[in-house]
């Protein structure tokens, strides 16, 4: 009984003592910080995706309050949230076009030739070191899901050996861009009506050997689109995202290889959670 009592008293005393020390320390070493940073941080999405180029959401909040960045720097926030932050701080919201990542390749397993079997690390960068990658096309998607694994929002899914971005989930943070050894992923305005799903600068004949849906630079789409709305670079048609063509171009151009497609048609169906990145 005596021992229990001693232990009890000792613990209580030391608890009170330590509590006092902590309380005193909090008073003496108090660092004054701007409470607005905490409030802005609350409003930001908190995904810490790094899409803004800062170390995370709280770092961006600090930068916004300090005036280094405009609230629109966050690529993930909706316009309403950006407006709320701007109103709270009384600053200009800054313009931000909602962008989404697009994988510029249509070469799924059923469309692109894959003459040999790859056996090795399940990672695109590593696979590209072995005989130039598993598929015959050296410029297309390898389908090993490196981008899907880095996506913080599970917006990328690999279907039939081809990475597809769910533009409704994609926040345009841009993390996937670095992970692709083929540089297939670019951020483009989400409102673009269609994309040219090909990345190969090779000649049409060469590309056609490797893939059914390659752009063969036939220029049909250029004729269908308005002036300066599309361009051709090295046997590869591209949408000019600063001056976007209308959705009717898909119909009018009647792309012979179906390389041109709207995001919805390119990737039918909804996100299957189990197929998305682990």
């Amino acid at each position: 009984m005596e021992t229990v009592l001693i232990a009890f008293i000792l613990m209580t005393l030391s608890g009170i003592l330590l509590g006092c020390i902590i309380g005193a320390a909090a008073k003496f070493f108090f660092v004054k910080s701007d409470p607005r940073i905490e409030d802005v941080n609350e409003m930001l999405p908190g995904a810490n995706c790094g899409g803004c180029g800062k170390a995370g959401c709280s770092d961006l909040a600090r930068a916004i309050v300090a005036g280094e960045c405009v609230p629109g720097s966050c690529p993930v926030c909706s316009l309403a949230v950006v407006g709320r932050i701007a109103a709270y701080l009384g600053v200009d919201a800054g313009s931000s076009v909602k962008k989404a990542a697009v994988v510029f390749c249509g070469g799924s397993n059923s469309k692109a030739r894959k003459s040999v079997n790859y056996n090795g690390i399940n990672d695109c960068i590593s696979a590209s070191l072995i005989a130039g990658g598993p598929k015959d096309c050296r410029f297309g998607c390898m389908g090993l899901a490196s981008c899907a694994r880095v996506c913080p929002f599970n917006a990328i899914e690999v279907i039939d050996g081809l990475a597809c971005v769910h533009s409704d989930i994609c926040t345009g943070c841009g993390k996937c861009i670095e992970s692709c050894p083929r540089k297939l992923i670019r951020l483009v305005p989400e409102t673009a009506p269609f994309h040219v799903y090909c990345n190969s600068p090779e000649k049409g004949v060469e590309k056609k050997k490797n893939c059914d849906v390659a752009c063969i630079a036939c220029r049909k789409c250029l004729k269908a689109a308005g002036e300066d709305q599309m361009k051709i670079e090295g046997f590869l048609a591209q949408v000019n995202y600063d001056n976007m063509p209308g959705a009717d171009v898909i119909e009018k151009a009647a792309c012979p290889t179906s390389c041109i497609s709207s995001p919805e048609n390119h990737f039918p169906g909804t996100l299957k959670k189990e197929n998305a990145a682990r």
Binding site: G120, I121, D123, I125, S126, L129, I130
Partner: peptide
């Protein structure tokens, strides 16, 4: 384990 492939990847990086 594909060790050599890992090392090539690491060296390249």
């Amino acid at each position: 384990r594909p060790l050599v492939q890992h090392f090539r990847r690491g060296k390249a990086e």
